[in-house]
Design a protein around this nucleic acid. Sequence first.
DNA 1: CTGAAAGCGCTTACAG
DNA 2: CTGAAAGCGCTTACAG
Lengths: 339, 339
Amino acid sequence: MIPKQTVNMTDVARRSGVSIASVSRALRGEAGVSPVTRARILSAARDLSYVVSPEASRLSGGPTGRVGVIVPRVDAWFYSTVLAGVADEFDTVGMDLILCTLPDAAARHRFFEALPLRRKVDAVVVVSVPLSARERTRIDQLGVPTVFVGGHHPGPDRFWVGIDDELAARQAVGHLLRIGHRDVAMIQAADDTDIPWATDQARIRGFHRELHEAGHRDPTVVTVTWSVDGGSRGMEILLSRPRLPSAVFCHSDEIALGALRTLRRAGLAVPQSLSIIGVDDHPSAELTDLTTVSQPVREQGQIAARAVLGQLGSEATALSAVTTLPTRLVIRGSTSPPR
Amino acid sequence: MIPKQTVNMTDVARRSGVSIASVSRALRGEAGVSPVTRARILSAARDLSYVVSPEASRLSGGPTGRVGVIVPRVDAWFYSTVLAGVADEFDTVGMDLILCTLPDAAARHRFFEALPLRRKVDAVVVVSVPLSARERTRIDQLGVPTVFVGGHHPGPDRFWVGIDDELAARQAVGHLLRIGHRDVAMIQAADDTDIPWATDQARIRGFHRELHEAGHRDPTVVTVTWSVDGGSRGMEILLSRPRLPSAVFCHSDEIALGALRTLRRAGLAVPQSLSIIGVDDHPSAELTDLTTVSQPVREQGQIAARAVLGQLGSEATALSAVTTLPTRLVIRGSTSPPR
DNA sequence: CTGAAAGCGCTTACAG
DNA sequence: CTGAAAGCGCTTACAG
C-alpha cells in the first residue's frame, strides 16, 4: 500500500495562522474574510496543493462537487459527443462527472429503483432518455436540479436543450421536394421501449406534414429498428416493393448508412437510382457523401453543463429554461433531382 | 414506499433495537453479529429502504465506491467503446465511475498537477494515454491501484490489457503479401505530442518487419496526423508520386477511411486500382467495405474493470497482470490480388 | 456478541 | 472579520 496524502484543512489553517473556519470560508470564496487573510490562506493552500475532502464537505452540508450524467449508452456517436461537451464544461470549473449508463431494461430498472446517485451529486443531466412518470418521480426524489438534453420537454421550470426535430425532418424532406422529387418514402425507426422517444415522433411528424403541405398524400413508410442494420433492412423492404420511390428520407444518418449499404450491395447507384437523405450529420455521413441535416451535438452538452452550473450558482449567467439549437441542411452527393 | 431523504443508520438502529455499531457491522457483512440480530437489522434496513451515506462511510475510513477513468477524449469510437465496457462492469457491482477527459495539453497539464481525483476514488483506469515520468509519478501519488488499457506496458506488478499492435500490423500486411502484392506502401499516423504512443510504434514496426521478412525493402511510407483528414492527405501524397503502390496499409481504419475518400474523389476504384487495408474494425469499416484487422475493444474495458475490482477485493478472481487480447483479419471488399 | 465513544474533515450557526 | 464548538453519518478500536 502506498501511503496516502493527508493534507487537510487543519494543515492549511496552521500554515496560514488562522482557524479552519476561516480557511473554509476563504476557499469557498465566501464573504467575511479580509483580503489579506484570504490571500494568505489561498497561497498556503496552493503551497500544500490542498484539495478539500469532498466527503467531509458534503457531510457538513456542502455540495458534493459532482454531477451525474445519465446516457442510454456511451458507445454511440450522439451520446459520446454530448458527453464530451458536458465533460469539457465541467472540467474547466473542476466539477466531477459521474457517468451513468442504462445499457438495457434491467439496468434501467435497477437504476431508477435503487437510485444509486442518491446523496452523491449536486445535479443531474439526463440525455435523451424518455422518462416514465415513475422514473421522473424517482429523479425528482434525488432532490437536486435536473437538466434535460433532447427528448421530451420536461415541462415548465425545467431546463431543456435540444433541436427542433420536426423542423429538421422538414428541412430534409423540403430539400427533396425542392429538387423535384414527388415520390418520397421514409424509413422510420422505432425503439422497442414502451415510452416513445419525442425525437422519433417529431421527425415522423415533420416528414408527413412537409409532404402534406406540398400536396403529397399517403407516402410509403417502412418501420425498422434504430440501427445501421435496421436501415439496411428498411431499404431491402423498399427494394422488394413493385415500385421504387425516387427519394428516401431516412429517420437518421445511421438508418441512411444502412440503406446505402443495401443499395451498394444491390448494385444500385446513388443518387442516380435513388436519392438518400438522413438527419444528424454523423461523422460517417461525410465519409459516405451523405446529404443530411446537421445538428450541433457537442454544443448541446456544453449548454446543458452551463445550465447545471447556473442553477448551482457556480455561474452567474441566467440561461433560459428552454434552448432550441438550429439545424442546417448539408447537401452532399447522395441527393440529386430525379431523372 | 417513497424513501425519506433522511433515513440514516440511527433510524435503522432504533427500528431494530440495537446500536449503530451493530448496524454498521451487519450491513457490511462483517463477522461478530449474531444471525438473529443480523436478520433483524437487514430487515429493518430493507423496510426503511436505507442506503449508507457514502460520504460518512468514506470519512470514517471506508472506500469511496468510486473509480476514476481517464481517457484522452470520449467522443471517439475507441475510447467510448472501452468506456462502455468499463461502465458495464462497474454498473453490476454498484461502483461509481468518475469520467476524466484530457481534451488538450492544457487540460492534461492541469489534471496531472492538480490531481483532482485525489481522495475521491478507490482506483484509477488509464486508457491509452502515454504517460511521462512526471505524470506516472503523479498518478502513483493518488495512492490507489491503477490499471492500464492499451499503450505502453506500465512495468511489472501493474495491470495492463490491450492487443499486440505489432502482430495486428503483421496480420494486415501479411494478407496483402499473401494475395500477391509486392509493392505495399504505408500511410502512418503520428501524434503531435512529445511522448510517442506505443501503439503507433508497434504498428509501424510490424509493417516493416513483415515486409522485410518477405524480402521487400524500403517500402514507401508517408506520415500524417491521426485523423480521417490525415488519411485523406496521406493518399493525396501517394497519388502525387510518379508510381502508385499496388496496396496501402493504413495505420488505422480512420486513416483508411480518409484514404478511401480521396480515392473516391479522384475517381479511382477500390480495390481495382489499389487495395486498402486498415486496423481496428471501426464501425465505419463495415459500412465502407474496408478490409481490416479487428480488435476487441469493449472487452478491453471490461477486463480493465474486472482487474480493478479484483485489486479492490470486491471480486475473488485472480487476473494476470498482463492480458493481451487476440486480433483477427477481417477480409472485406477493399482488398484483392493486384492485376 | 454488543455498545459507548472517539474520531474522519469539513460547514455553519453562534459568539466575540 | 475571526474563532470555538457543534454537528454531518458513518467506522473502528476499546470495553464489557
